[in-house]
Design a protein around this nucleic acid. Structure first.
Lengths: 224, 224
DNA sequence: CGGCAGCTTATTGTATACAAATACCATTCG
DNA sequence: CGAATGGTATTTGTATACAATAAGCTGCCG
């Protein structure tokens, strides 16, 4: 997409994710426009997208606020992700090409390399991991599904999750990818879906384990 | 949302659904602005929303086209709907209030009345049906889920589906709602989810039966 | 005859000014 | 003292002008 509108989008998004814009805070278009160095027009565009992705909420009179996710909300997001991504895996099993299978293997080998050093290379793990899941989504060949998953997968959350992983968990992740590959080899959609469900659920519990302290704050008061 | 932007949205949407804007047609913001009697600004807003709902697609250079759904796409939409809506039913089972249960019953009674006349009143059936499903979504209490389902449920498709229903199917629909009510009474999420899955899948087959003639046209050529 | 370069036109992106709506505050009246 | 009401300030919505970009065409050259 266009330059200004994109810059505004990623700028605002990163300010939210970094906590620079705190949950519950009201945000004014003009203030953001200044922060991003663009006019209100692209900012409004960006806000629309962020609202669709539930980073931002609007009250009944169109004022915007930074969304405040409780642990409950996060579990719901993970649950939806598990559902959608295992659906993707099932579809992918019936459609995946040899080339895509090969690329999956490459990235899972990359993951193995990244974690078999004595100090695991988490950024490298994450990069290969991201590609791995993207290829499955590509093989599933559904724009709809791709769009919906984008709403539910937050890479920063994936990052914070991975940071909770000890070596054992990282290896297990790698082995689960291997099992997915086996399911794809056999074109077994049910198997692939089942493995994917467990894969995502485990990620949630790793995340929740680490964050259960400040749990379950309510959303701020905005209209449904 | 605001007046002009809303008018543009529903106007364009209805033009697409009525076939006045044919699938594959390129649409220009200014032309739509004239048709809607507003400026380009609210039209762009509307296009963004319609794009998110996959009524409109954009190619790599930001030109907009009316989306062209194949039967495959439609099945995928129904599949996702079945998944999401049964998830909603499961959640709802654990959270639904007495008031919501009572309202569900009222609407299902309304459905019964609408179809037990000698000439079934389809609009009335649809209205009660819509409320019925909305209440379940409300009980599920997940903004995320609500938003996603909005992307996947098209009331015009529901309408065309219901028009395919003979009396037997309409009654079956009513009985399935009854079974959902029973599941909710017992707070049995698994049961509710299972019934809902069947309920939606049956709707898809009724739709597909009637539309299988002009099946499976490819999407128009736009970037992913 | 085909294809490519450069220009022209069509279309979308951005900024800005102004209009409409809403919230906030102060003041007054019960 | 509290609530309602009005006015003012703040914020979002819309229109319009202009900038940037991409598409399409024309004419030239291979």
């Amino acid at each position: 997409m266009s330059r200004a509108s994109d810059r505004a989008y990623s700028h605002i998004r990163s300010m939210i994710l970094s906590g620079e814009l705190q949950p519950g805070l009201q945000i004014r278009e003009e203030a953001l426009a200044e922060l991003c160095g663009v006019s209100r027009t692209p900012v409004r565009d960006a806000l629309r997208r962020l609202e669709a992705e539930l980073f931002i909420r609007r009250n009944e009179s169109q004022r915007s606020f930074v969304a405040d996710w409780s642990l409950d909300d996060l579990e719901e997001a993970f649950q939806l992700r598990a559902m959608l991504e295992s659906h993707a895996a099932r579809r992918a099993a019936g459609r995946i090409s040899w080339d895509q299978l090969a690329r999956l293997r490459t990235h899972n080998d990359g993951i193995k390399l990244a974690i078999t050093d004595k100090t695991p290379d988490v950024p490298k793990f994450l990069d290969h991991n991201r590609h791995f899941h993207m290829i499955i989504l590509e093989a599933a060949a559904s724009d709809r599904l791709t769009g919906m998953l984008a709403q539910v997968i937050e890479q920063p959350v994936v990052l914070r999750t991975a940071l909770q992983y000890d070596l054992e968990n990282l290896m297990r992740s790698h082995r689960e990818h291997d099992e997915l590959l086996a399911a794809f080899d056999h074109r077994d959609g049910d198997w692939a879906a089942a493995v994917m469900t467990g894969h995502i659920r485990r990620a949630f519990h790793a995340y929740a384990e680490a964050h259960k302290t400040g749990a379950d704050q309510p959303m701020n008061d905005v209209a449904a």
